[in-house]
């Protein structure tokens, strides 16, 4: 692998830095690495990553009471064995269940990285039916409120019926599954 800075020598220093939530990987030769004071250096990947992520992660930790904090840091994902401390060092979750286990920490973390805490993009085609219906209901509710505000009660009633219809469809689905 060739150095990112001089483009000449073999790169043997690997850096990961997070700038505004974007993860950047940088590879430098020893020479360029020692000359640069833009970053903090270390050949140990985790060490540098820990420092760089710390800026994002530590405020979330500090905001909580220390007792809570202690408790939370002891929680370990029962599927992959990751602790929150391990996550904050690596910057990586170990499995999908980690998202449930560390749920109470994620709200502020995601807010800091993305400025948002609610997915509004694509939904899986095959298994995302429920969420699609939920979104449809929210959409219809908005339209119903609008209709009521415009005193168009006839339209509001039609929308209400549509909402009920989807509601019962969703319930049927849940009952069918379990």
């Amino acid at each position: 692998m060739i150095c990112d800075k001089c483009g000449e020598k073999e790169a043997n220093v690997h850096l990961t830095k997070i700038v505004n939530g974007e993860k950047n990987e940088i590879y430098l030769c020893e020479n360029c690495a020692s000359q640069s004071n833009e970053f903090s250096f270390g050949t140990d990947h985790n060490f540098t990553f820990q420092n760089l992520l710390a800026g994002i992660l530590s405020p979330a930790i500090n905001n909580e009471s220390s007792q809570n904090n202690l408790l939370n840091n002891k929680v370990v994902c029962n599927k992959c064995n990751s602790s929150y401390q391990e996550f904050s060092q690596k910057g990586l979750f170990g499995c999908a269940e980690c998202y449930d286990i560390f749920e109470n920490k994620l709200e502020s973390l995601m807010k800091r990285i993305h400025g948002n805490t609610e997915h509004s993009g694509k939904v899986p085609q095959r298994r995302g039916g429920r969420l699609k219906l939920k979104r449809k209901i929210n959409d219809l509710r908005d339209q119903m409120q609008e209709a009521i505000a415009m005193e168009n009660f006839e339209k509001a009633a039609i929308l209400r019926d549509q909402i009920h219809e989807i509601d019962s469809e969703m319930e049927g689905e849940v009952n069918g599954e379990h």
Binding site: L92, F93, H119
Partner: peptide, 30 residues
């Protein structure tokens, strides 16, 4: 993505969207 999803169950949550190893990719994964 659809083609893979037809036969594979992807990690997805209603709140966070597509779940990824790094929190900087979560949601759309795009």
């Amino acid at each position: 993505d659809d083609l893979l999803e037809e036969n594979l169950d992807f990690a997805f949550s209603e709140k966070w969207g597509y779940l990824t190893a790094c929190p900087t990719n979560v949601g759309t994964g795009l």
